[in-house]
Amino acid sequence: MSGVIGWDDFMAVDLRVGRVVSAEPFPQARRPAYILHVDFGPELGVRKSSAQITAHYTPQTLVGRLVVGVVNFPPKQIGPLMSECLVTGFHDADGHVRLCVPDGDVAPGTRLL
């Protein structure tokens, strides 16, 4: 079991709903990945991320899809890409990532509470 955190610790992580506006292969990544451009609404705009989700998704199936991302990490250099957010997901039984997504339509930029 993970360690216990306080409410303030949880609230420090800014998790928001975003809509994938484009996805493309990221051939320079060490492991198979896509470069995602995710729209987090008018307050945050479009942010880039590298996502190792090639086992279950294609660029075509990602565009228009809602995702949940951490938007308050500092930018991170991943090869030639400056990642600006972390798209969240869960490893399945085979170790491949399945995206964490809302189960209905939610406006981009909505914060998880």
Rank of each mutant, 00 (worst) to 15 (best):
I53G: 01
P42D: 14
M1S: 12
Y57V: 03
M82D: 11
P32R: 07
Q77D: 10
Q77A: 10
L113N: 06
C85G: 00
F40A: 03
N72I: 00
D92L: 13
G41L: 03
S49Y: 06
A107F: 08
I78L: 11
T61L: 01
D8K: 12
V97R: 13
P42N: 14
P80L: 13
A93P: 14
E24M: 11
D39R: 08
P59H: 00
L99F: 04
D92N: 06
T110G: 14
P59I: 03
V38C: 02
K76L: 08
G104D: 08
I53V: 08
F73M: 11
V106A: 15
R31H: 11
V13L: 08
C100V: 06
R30W: 08
R65F: 01
P75G: 09
S83F: 01
G45Q: 13
H91N: 15
A55W: 02
L81K: 06
S50K: 09
V87Q: 04
R98M: 06
K76Y: 03
A23H: 02
K76A: 15
V20T: 12
D103T: 02
P108S: 07
W7V: 13
P27H: 04
G89E: 01
R111L: 05
L44P: 03
G64R: 10
G79N: 08
F26P: 11
P80Y: 09
D9T: 12
P25I: 08
V106N: 12
M82Y: 05
D9E: 02
L36K: 01
V63T: 02
M11K: 14
T88I: 03
V71D: 01
R65G: 02
R111G: 08
V4C: 10
L15K: 14
P59W: 00
M11Q: 13
L66D: 05
V87N: 04
E43V: 06
R65D: 02
S49I: 10
I53F: 00
A107K: 15
T58D: 06
K76G: 15
A33I: 01
S49W: 01
T88N: 15
L66M: 13
K48C: 10
S49N: 13
D105H: 11
V4N: 13
V101H: 10
F73P: 12
E84N: 07
V68G: 12
V71G: 12
R111Q: 05
R111K: 15
V20H: 03
S49F: 07
S2W: 07
L66A: 05
V4L: 10
V63M: 01
L66C: 03
A93T: 09
C100A: 06
V106Q: 09
E84H: 00
P74E: 15
